[in-house]
Amino acid sequence: MNVQFKKGVLDLCVLALTAWEDRYGYELAVTMSAKFEVAVGSVYPLLNRLTQEGFFSTYLKESSEGPPRKYYKLTALGHTHLMGLIGEWRSFSVAVDELIKEGVER
């Protein structure tokens, strides 16, 4: 997939993963990397940036097996941003589908 296109969508996906539950970095990075062709290591800078922009807040939580883990929690601002991105995505994908139907699958 086109790199620049993907970058915008990655924001949406990583925010979406945290909509209902807080997740720790490793979990987010591995899930994203499994779905898209991105290195696990480049998901962490993404999380950092989204945190800096105020869409995530982070906290440390003890885990059952060992040292505490850094959890990412969607903030109110992050939630609003996510809803906006989802809206954009929906209208975008509807438009693409329509054009595919019109041009290819007739």
Binding site: A39, V40, L47, P67
Partner: peptide, 29 residues
């Protein structure tokens, strides 16, 4: 985040090499 990545990886029983390979080339990162 990268230190934690290795830590969690180890907890899941994965080798350091595998964790490093999964992260991707440090130069690109």
């Amino acid at each position: 985040d990268y230190e934690e990545h290795f830590r969690v990886s180890a907890e899941l029983g994965r080798s350091e090499e595998a964790a490093a390979a999964e992260l991707g080339d440090p130069r690109m990162i």
